[in-house]
C-alpha cells in the first residue's frame, strides 16, 4: 500500500513539474528570446490557449474573418484588445496605425477588438482618430474568451502563421516597443 501510494504521489509530482517545465521552456517562446529574464517575462499565462481554436470574427464593416485563415495568410497577426474609454489604448493606437502601414508588405495584419464598448462610440472614435486597420466588437467577451480571457486593456496578442500565440503584452506599447516586438518576432 505504501509503495503504491508513493508511486502515485510520485506520478502526480512528476506531472506537475513536467507541466511547469513544458510551459516555461516552450520552444516557441525560446525561439524569440535571448535571455532567461525575457524567457520568464514572456511566459504565456495559465488558461491562455497556445494554439487558438477556430474563431470567426466579424468586423464593424460586416466582413467575416476566419482567424485560422487570417493567420495562415500572414507571418504574424497582431490582435489588440482596446476600448475607447481606455487612455493607454487610445494613445497606442496611432502606433498600430503607423506600423500597419509600414508592415503592409511584410505579411503582418493588425486587428483591433473593441471591448466593453458601444458600436456607435467605436465608429465615432475610429473616424475621429483616423484608424484604418480592421476593428471588431466583442460585447459578449466571445473573442476574449477564445484567447483565455482579457482582464486588462490594452492587451496585445501576437499570433504566428500556425495559429499559435507567440507573445502577449499587457499594457501600453510605445512605438519603439511595438517595432522591437515585431522585428524580434519576424526575425
Amino acid at each position: 500500500m505504501v509503495a503504491v501510494g508513493g508511486f502515485l504521489i510520485g506520478i502526480i509530482l512528476f506531472a506537475q513539474v513536467a507541466n511547469h517545465v513544458h510551459k516555461i521552456f516552450d520552444p516557441l517562446q525560446i525561439k524569440n528570446l535571448v535571455s532567461v529574464k525575457q524567457l520568464f517575462s514572456a511566459k504565456i499565462p495559465e488558461g491562455v490557449p497556445v494554439k487558438l481554436p477556430d474563431l470567426i470574427i466579424t468586423t464593424i464593416e460586416g466582413e467575416q474573418l476566419v482567424l485560422k485563415e487570417l493567420t495562415s495568410r500572414n507571418r504574424l497577426v497582431v490582435v489588440n484588445f482596446w476600448a475607447s474609454w481606455c487612455s493607454p489604448c487610445v494613445e497606442e493606437m496611432p502606433h498600430f496605425e503607423k506600423i500597419n502601414r509600414d508592415y503592409q508588405n511584410k505579411n503582418v495584419t493588425f486587428l483591433g477588438i473593441a471591448t466593453k464598448d458601444l458600436l456607435s462610440v467605436v465608429r465615432k472614435f475610429i473616424v475621429q482618430k483616423e484608424i484604418t486597420y480592421k476593428i471588431a466588437m466583442d460585447d459578449q467577451d466571445k473573442i476574449a474568451n477564445a484567447f483565455g480571457g482579457v482582464k486588462v486593456l490594452p492587451t496585445t496578442i501576437f499570433i504566428d502563421n500556425n495559429n499559435r500565440i507567440v507573445k502577449i503584452h499587457k499594457g501600453y506599447l510605445s512605438q519603439r516597443e511595438l517595432d522591437e516586438n515585431l522585428k524580434d518576432l519576424l526575425h
Binding site: W85, S87, P88, T115, K116, L153, P154, K170
Partner: peptide, 12 residues
C-alpha cells in the same frame, strides 16, 4: 468607476 494605472486600464 473605471480604474487604471500608468500602463493599463481595468474594466468599468
Amino acid at each position: 468607476y473605471q480604474a487604471c494605472n500608468d500602463q493599463m486600464c481595468f474594466m468599468p
